[in-house]
């Protein structure tokens, strides 16, 4: 008989994204968790980098917001989920925003597409005037 394991949140924390210093805190806090949960160094580096990109997006495009960090367990498998929310202007064309090189803030336009490549799962919910929520997960 096959058992379907339920996804459980074993740990959770919310961090503000209001200033550049908050971006540094987000990176440090994600790194601490990943290190405690024994993710490999390469996984740690990829996830912290994705967190930095998405937190900066929330700050620069969304005018600030928050990151909710959750540790997931499905059976013996562990993962980390990062949910970035802002109440900014939202994104009209998500397909375009995910393309490398597309930027409205004078950056390199690698934030969304790059983060998607660095994580296992990527979800974005946004519409003009309704803010943006980006949820990314990486499994160990």
């Amino acid at each position: 008989m096959e058992t379907v394991s339920e996804q459980i949140i074993t740990r959770s924390e919310i961090l503000p994204i209001r200033t550049q210093i908050d971006l540094v805190h987000v990176r440090q806090r994600v790194r601490t968790w990943l290190s405690e949960e024994r993710f490999t160094l390469i996984d740690q580096t990829k996830i912290v980098t994705a967190a930095s990109e998405l937190a900066r997006n929330a700050l620069e495009h969304g005018g600030g917001g928050q990151m909710e960090m959750s540790l997931l367990a499905v059976g013996a498998r562990k993962g980390i989920r990062l949910k970035f929310s802002d109440q900014g202007p939202g994104i009209a064309d998500i397909t375009m925003a995910l393309k490398d090189g597309y930027t409205t803030a004078g950056g390199m336009g690698l934030g969304l597409g790059g983060s998607k490549r660095l994580m296992s799962e990527f979800d974005i919910q946004s519409s003009p005037g309704a803010g943006t929520v980006v949820t990314v997960t990486r499994w160990k």
Partner: peptide
């Protein structure tokens, strides 16, 4: 540059 940083940068697209 640390190897993990190099791997991540390239995957990021830089």
């Amino acid at each position: 540059m640390q190897p993990a940083v190099a791997i991540t940068l390239v995957e990021l697209g830089m």
